[in-house]
């Protein structure tokens, strides 16, 4: 599939799916269960709004979602109380599959959601979105409900600066344009067609989710794309434009940590796929610098991209799902 063909056929705008009634009919016709998972860590300021809007618009008014779950990494603020007060199912990540131990990272929550939630499709939405709107969910579910070939739908955010139809640059954030897209262009050219490969909002069929491994940290989104692409090709991936997303802006130093984690994940994927061989033992310490009275100091961060295996390999999950 050429990049342009994929962009034409598998790139959508959320407005195409704004008739939620039709989505509900499609869901009921296919007998699907749909779950929303919001991974959290200290998000008391935005979580209440997300739950109120999704519950009102996509459960009470239109029965599109069957559950709204918050999987929390152990927030020290009121995130869990706020989420519960507005009717979400709230879980502590460490209490799900406790025999598997506890790892810190958003990917851990996403992975454990596969065990905990009941949906045939799970929509993952970050909790730090300030301009939350139902389109964040229905825009991602739409392609999956209308096209059986599509397995994994990723969000991207574009807001036209003008209403003209001329050419304008389009793309992702700093880490995407400086690291991920160049890497994809070098080694997985078709994946470079994903406008925002690092966006934290996506919807995936369970039949696929349970088969892919989950890095628990920064690399989870990148590794998903590589794994799905290698397993099923570009036909299985789609992307939806959700217009603008307003969220906290990250400092460049924090983006450095993100890039360090992603790079580890991509290198290890390339190694396991045989694209590069004889990868040396990777150092997991990121060094950044600061000055104190004109004296340079090193600040070291240990960023180890651990990985959870595909959920289908976990005996407790197989038992729960009735797999032999």
């Amino acid at each position: 599939m050429t990049i342009n063909k994929w962009l034409k056929e598998n790139t959508f705008h959320h407005s195409r799916f704004q008739n939620i009634n039709d989505l509900v009919k499609e869901k009921e016709k296919q007998g699907l269960n749909l779950s929303l998972c919001i991974p959290t860590l200290n998000e008391e300021k935005t979580i209440g709004k997300e739950i109120v809007i999704f519950k009102s618009e996509l459960m009470t008014k239109y029965p599109l979602l069957d559950e709204i779950a918050v999987i929390d990494s152990g927030s020290t603020d009121n995130t869990r109380d706020v989420a519960e007060a507005f009717g979400a199912d709230v879980y502590l990540a460490k209490e799900i599959l406790p025999e598997m131990g506890e790892k810190k990272g958003k990917g851990e929550n996403l992975w454990k959601a596969i065990y905990q939630l009941k949906g045939d499709i799970i929509v993952y939405i970050d909790a730090d979105i300030k301009n939350i709107h139902p389109r964040f969910v229905y825009g991602l579910l739409g392609p999956l409900l209308y096209n059986q070939k599509i397995q994994y739908v990723k969000a991207f955010y574009e807001r036209p600066l003008t209403t003209s139809h001329g050419v304008r640059p389009s793309g992702g954030g700093r880490v995407t344009e400086i690291l991920v897209r160049p890497l994809f262009s070098l080694f997985f050219p078709e994946l470079s067609a994903l406008i925002q490969p690092l966006s934290g909002e996506y919807a995936v069929r369970r039949t696929l989710l349970e088969k892919i491994p989950f890095p628990i940290g920064y690399g989870v989104e990148t590794s998903h794309l590589i794994d799905v692409y290698k397993m099923l090709g570009m036909e299985a991936i789609a992307q939806t434009d959700l217009d603008q997303r307003v969220h906290r802006n990250q400092q460049t130093r924090d983006l450095g940590k993100m890039a360090f984690g992603i790079l580890q994940t991509v290198l290890s994927r390339m190694n396991s796929l045989g694209i590069i061989s004889e990868l040396p033992i990777l150092n997991h310490t990121l060094r950044q610098f600061q000055t104190d009275d004109n004296v340079f100091e090193t600040v070291e961060y240990n960023i180890l991209e651990e990985e959870r295996p595909p959920m289908i390999e976990i005996p407790a999950y197989r038992k729960k799902m009735g797999y032999k």
Binding site: V52, I53, S56, T60, K61, G87, N131
Partner: peptide
Amino acid sequence: TVNEVLLSNLVMVGE
């Protein structure tokens, strides 16, 4: 029980 519908309208209109 209609709490979230009103609050949802409030947020969407208020923003």
